[in-house]
Structure formats: structure tokens, C-alpha cells
Amino acid sequence: MLLALDTSADITVALVSADGTAALAARRVPEQRRHAELLSPLVAEVLRDAGTDRRAVTAVVVGTGPAPFTGLRAGLVTARTLAFALGVPVHGVCSLAALAAQAFGDRAAEPGDDVVVLTDARRREVYHARYAARTEAPGALALRHGPGVARPADLVASGALAHAVVVGPGAVLHADDVAGLPGGPDRGPQHVDPVVLARLALARAELGVGQPVEPLYLRRPDVMPAGGRRRATG
């Protein structure tokens, strides 16, 4: 049984069957700011809902973003600490990969397509990454480009979205920029599904791919360098 969580946008938690096929219990709260407050209570709730002991968890899977800083960190420190305390491994999966896998799963994209996932990076920018389905390893994805952070218009101009199905909440938010590109009016999946996150982690473990639990901040910290000796008078 895997515990999967993502805090790259809203807060989502699920207990997932060991084969990655089904959610035993799940919660999603459309809350963009209170990740550190609500995440652990949600974990406690899914454990209670599933009627399972927390010691039955065999691995923790966490979305590593990209995302604004504070909420992402709450998810990662929670996942790392839970895994350490439960004595189980923790796997990091790029949150954009989950949305891409969901697009293939929902048939928003077909097996031969490339998918570009766009999510809201605020400051009028989007996080982006481009994937193809990996036919030789069902459930796994091939990363073609990214993840990165950019203005939507610059992405279009760079050709990064060419010949791809463009999905995700960033594509809805910046509909004008991506108008005319494939992806349908709904722009595919809008929320990370923690079951898919867990499934990707299992598929990648099968392939022997490392799954570091490192945050994808993609932006440097804002700093206010202080001056040297300054006059306080006149």
C-alpha cells in the first residue's frame, strides 16, 4: 500500500493499492495556501477511511513540483518525514509527469502524441514540460523537454509547443496564448491524481530510474541584498 501526495497546486492525498491500480481512500482540497496546515490531517483521514494501520504503508510517493515554494516544501518535508518515521522508502515524481500520464490515460492524447503540460507559475508565467508515451514500458513516460518556467507567449514563439497536445491548468489560464493548438476545449487533466503519481513511481522503480525527492523550484530565491556602511543621519 502506497501513500501518495501532491502539493504542487491544491492538496491531494491517496492511499493506493500496492499494484498502483486503485485508490483505497483519497482526499483533495482545492486550497492553494494552507498546505502545511491541512496536509497531515488529510493523511490521517485517508488512513482512517481506508481502515488501515499506518504501518501497512510500504512507500511514500510525493509530487516534486514544479510549484511555488511554500506549499511544495510542506509536501516534501511531510513525505520525507513520514517515510523516515515509518521506515519506508520515499519516491519523488515530477507533478507535470502525472498530468501528462493522466492525459494519455484520459485519451486527451493518443499513444503517438507528444504532450506538453502547462501549470500556473504565477507572475504571468507557466511551468512546462514535454513528454511522449513510452510504448516499451506501459505507464512510463519519456521526458522530451523541461521542466522549465516561461511566459506562455515565449514558449509558443520558441516552438516548444509545436506538434504537441497542450494540456493542464496553465493552458486554461492562458487560453489565448495556446488557442489553435491541440488539446481540446477542456485542456485535459487539471488536477494531479495521486494514484497516477504512485503508478508512475512504480513504473519507474521497475525501470530502475532514480526518483530523487528534490523540490523543483525552478526559480532562485528573492533576496534583498543589504548595503554596506550607511549614513543614518542627514
Partner: peptide
């Protein structure tokens, strides 16, 4: 500081849940 406080609080909650 809010950001730093948040990391410790999230970690502490995870321990509280994992250890009951």
C-alpha cells in the same frame, strides 16, 4: 519567519501522524 516556521510545523505534524 513564516516560511521557515512552516517547514518545521509540517515536519512535526508528519511525525505526530506517523507515530500517533
Amino acid at each position: 519567519l513564516v516560511g521557515p516556521l512552516t517547514v518545521g510545523a509540517a515536519a512535526a505534524k508528519a511525525l505526530a501522524v506517523a507515530l500517533d
